[in-house]
Simulated assay, not measured.
Amino acid sequence: MPILNATVHRIQKMGDAPARLEPAQAPLPQTDILDALLEGLNKAYHAKSKAWGHFSDTEAGAEEASEGSEPVSPLPGELADYLAERRDFLALTRGIAERLTALLDAHLSVSGDLIVLDTRFGDGRFLTLALLHHREGFAVDEHLAVIPARQLNLAQMSLAARIDLTQWQAGHSRQYLSWTRDRGGKALAEGFAALLGAVEGVDASGETRTLLRAFSDFVEKEDLPEEASREKTDALIGYASDQASRGEPITLEELSEVLDEQQPKAFFEHIRNADYGLSPEIPPDRKTLSQFRRFTGRSGGVSISFDSHLLGSSIEYDDAADRLIIKQVPKQLKDQIKGKN
């Protein structure tokens, strides 16, 4: 992933003293170490719980909206100037760092380094920013002596965001912007979103749950054998997890092809005909995916298969009595039982 520009600004916060910005004086030189840091940063970011959305539709670049309303983030306007080469990278990132310093002063009591990178990957261009903290570690010097070493702690990423600049400029997407929202409480999360000028455009966990429900309905409708059902479940989770690892959305048409090469449109048509209200592209939610699997079993002429999220709701297991209780019997099965009687 070629790095077009990169810089680090330091934000110092000591006790009750006001947070202080130590701005970078020049962009970082492009080195192998910086490339490795970017790779680690991307992996850590993709593993985080995130919100997905877009810039506010309010006119970008204004310092304030109409009287009495919330201030408008200048970031979209500054980004537009940077991409049009009317603003240099150092000025762009210093503006972000100054506003972040004020936010940290109000909500956090820790120092950190703000790293900002402008990168290109394939046909896409991205701006990534992350506030990183340090941890004390150890190293071995050239004399084979153990020495203390301060390291950037990628796992402790307080605030971070990623903007798909290509999608933003194209104007066709409402989920080109993602940002972390799992640390520091509601006020900090809302303040960070306001700093970015971000509006949540899609509920990643909700969309992922709806997708999994659509898949469960599809498997039930197709009345697939146990092995085929398990294979399709593994294919779905594998594809969705790979997309999450790359920070890319689940594309419904692509997923449909992954699930069945012989009938590549079958799952996509099922979703469209049943009108689940899903977007063509869904940002995958790792936590929701990790909780999804199918329970299957066969014994004495009885074959049972159901999704794990149904356990405790429409399906209950009584361990003491060794009973499985199905509260909502599938209509097709019910009709067969009634017809038999």
Rank of each mutant, 00 (worst) to 15 (best):
M1G: 11
P2S: 15
L4R: 08
N5D: 08
V8G: 04
H9S: 01
G15R: 02
P18F: 13
P27W: 13
D35Q: 00
L37M: 09
L38A: 06
E39T: 07
H46L: 03
K48G: 14
G68M: 11
S73H: 01
L75I: 07
E78W: 05
L83W: 13
F89K: 03
L90V: 10
A91P: 11
T93A: 01
R94L: 14
I96E: 05
E98L: 12
E98Q: 09
L103N: 05
S109A: 09
I115F: 03
D118Y: 03
R120I: 04
G122F: 02
G122W: 02
G122H: 03
L129G: 15
E136K: 07
F138H: 07
D141W: 04
E142V: 07
H143V: 09
V146E: 08
A149R: 11
M157V: 11
A161N: 08
I163R: 02
Q167F: 00
A170I: 02
Q175S: 03
Q175P: 05
Q175T: 00
Y176K: 02
T180Q: 10
R181D: 12
D182Y: 13
R183Q: 12
L188K: 04
A189N: 11
A193L: 15
A194V: 08
L195T: 02
V199F: 12
V199P: 05
V199Q: 15
E200N: 13
G201S: 01
V202R: 01
V202H: 01
T208V: 00
R209K: 15
T210Q: 08
D217S: 09
D217A: 09
F218S: 14
E220V: 14
K221I: 09
K221N: 14
S229L: 13
K232P: 00
K232C: 03
I237N: 04
G238W: 10
Y239K: 01
A240N: 00
E248D: 06
T251P: 04
E253Q: 12
E254K: 10
L255S: 06
S256H: 12
E257C: 06
Q262I: 15
Q263F: 08
Q263Y: 14
P264Y: 11
P264V: 05
F267Q: 05
F268K: 07
E269H: 11
E269D: 05
L278M: 03
P280Q: 04
P283K: 01
R286K: 07
K287D: 15
L289R: 15
L289F: 07
F292R: 14
F295E: 03
G297I: 06
G300N: 15
I304L: 10
S308E: 10
S314W: 14
S314L: 15
S314C: 08
D318P: 06
A321M: 10
R323T: 10
L324R: 03
K327C: 07
P330N: 00
K331L: 06
L333N: 14
K334M: 09
Q336R: 07
K338D: 10
N341M: 11
N341I: 11
